[in-house]
Nucleic acid binder design. Structure first.
Lengths: 203, 203, 203, 203
DNA sequence: TATGAATGAGTTTTCATTCAT
DNA sequence: AATGAATGAAAACTCATTCAT
């Protein structure tokens, strides 16, 4: 039935409306500080509807994280599949993450600030998902080492942590307004992260 | 009076007892998930006593953070004051932070997971304090650039973020058991962090 | 129209489907503990449909109770109208109630546990209906006393309560698995209830 | 310390205050219909205090039931230990239960009306406790059968159910005002219950 | 008839904090 | 200094019920 199809469309839209509202609310108030009714108010729906679509407030955060994280994992896999120099791959990954932030800073803020903490409280559910990303990056490094592109005396796991840590810290700097965010700063950041990690600070 | 002195000593000990218990409880349950009475139970005192020594639950966390962070700031300042090559300074800073973790992993976990990454939830309370550390590191880099030790096309602020981000990510890896923590891994990490950031991954 | 007749038949069937599902759900979860959607799920319909046939969750229970209780009242009246010795009448009444349980234990469980014993929670809604049964039984006793079949120093009201109480307690014993429910136990129970109440335990 | 002893006394008193208030509230509104705040209001305390002394609303009901039921079990055991004819024992048991009702009708109402239903919802916790009572009564009957006081063709378990069912139904009659409750009615009831169950209705 | 999205009143429960002792 | 009884604000969550389709 058309009616049913239309309803299903509306239902999906409402769910999305709630998720998008949650991003804004989590970003501005923090996950713990906000109430479910704040999300509902922001979305313009009754708060009961949040529970119609999600089992709990936690699950709203989970959903946001998993949605975005899966997109990122896919992007990293896609980059790794391309026939590129390792350095170009790292550039593409850094670019993807920086662009994700540029495109939706609130969402990235929520994922970085709230999910790490939640990972601690809610058990290990997300940790494995997060590790997948590190492992994918580590695989890029490992292949580069085998190919002689990267030095072999730094473990791929470790290199992945340094690379990802540098990116995340830059985003954190933007989130807390510690680093400047002018027009060219995003592209500059992409370049500098890779330059630092690959070539080092030494002269 | 001796009696008073003894009481004062006991009072300071009780306060410390509560702070140490809080570290363990915050680390295992998370700040938000735990109750004040959990801290008191862990310390073996009545929960009313927590309020004798601290204004609020927040203030317990604040105290833990500030105590430790000030020690770290002092350590960085002290390192910077020494007559060392920039690379040695960064090594000393990395060593200090890694050793802090080795000495009291719970405390570092609390500081990273509950304060550093969550700073916006607490308003902007600690952001300036946190920035002080970045600025001190940036100053080390800036001087190294002036002295021709480090290349000048990467801003000191940015370099500081990459450096600190790499360290924090390694600690996070240990905290969530993503990275191995065997006997030699701590010293290895100190070396590799600086090696990666200063010399880069390139061959 | 045949279509209309068919629809009406379907409607009545759906209503019955819901009532039967409600019996199972009320029996296994209890009236308060279950949700309207549990009934709908059990019936295999959308929960909105429950509200098409019934004004409220309460009314579903009311309907179940009244349906069955009216059948019982009618049965008691019919027994009383027969030309039988009082003892035979009580036997027939006990048999009817025991057979009701044997035929649909869930329904009797719901009526006893959720309505008969809980009548005050529903205001005094069903108390008069319930009393009708006691009064009909009391009338049987009163007539037997007038006819010299039963002793006259026990009030008919009181005798009715003892008789009905014994039956209900036996059902309760079955409901909570306190009394055995093997093949012959139902017929044995019918006999023993009347034997106990009419002839007593004395030797 | 005297202060501590006094506090403990007050604490126990407050707990009792809450339990007594709960009896009145459960009796007048029913367990499900009342709110925890109704109990607290009735007791004149903040509702948080209810949770200071009890884990949940359920546990308040549990406590009331177990307190009273244990007293009854003890009373039955004590009666059974006496050197009395079986009929006298049953009289003493009936008298104890009727007097319990006379002394605190609200409490007995709660136990009879709410606990049976709760036994259904909350699991089997109370059922065993309730069965203990039946078993003690059955033991009285069994011994009487062995001694030749009671006929042996009615199982003790069954006799116990009839006896207890008759008593409970009389209380239910009082609770729902189906049976008269004038001055002499309580003592009359004690006598009639035993007379009916032991000697029967037959002339 | 039938569906299930949408609503929001209502309730339990938690827990930081206060304060009398 | 130390205790823990007492408070009540606050929030998550439930679920009966309505209603557009």
């Amino acid at each position: 039935m058309a009616g049913t199809a239309r309803s299903a469309a509306n239902a999906a839209e409402k769910r999305r409306l709630i998720l998008d509202a949650a991003v804004r609310v989590f970003a501005s108030q923090g996950f713990h500080a906000c109430r479910v009714s704040d999300i509902a108010d922001e979305a313009g729906v009754a708060y009961g509807l949040v529970y119609h679509y999600f089992r709990s407030k936690d699950q709203v955060l989970d959903t946001l994280f998993l949605e975005r994280w899966d997109v990122m994992l896919e992007a990293i896999r896609e980059v790794d599949a391309r026939d590129l120099a390792a350095r170009r791959k790292l550039e593409a990954i850094a670019a993807f993450i920086v662009d994700s932030y540029r495109h939706d800073p609130d969402l990235m803020k929520v994922i970085i600030v709230e999910v790490t903490r939640a990972a601690n409280s809610f058990g290990q559910t997300h940790i494995e998902k997060i590790n997948e990303a590190y492992n994918l990056i580590a695989a890029v490094v490992a292949k580069a080492q085998d190919a002689g592109e990267f030095r072999s005396d730094i473990s791929p796991q470790f290199a992945a942590m340094a690379f990802y840590g540098a990116i995340e810290q830059v985003l954190t700097g933007w989130i807390f307004a510690t680093l400047p965010q002018a027009a060219g700063d995003y592209d500059e950041a992409k370049r500098l992260i890779v330059e630092t990690i690959c070539s080092g600070l030494d002269r």
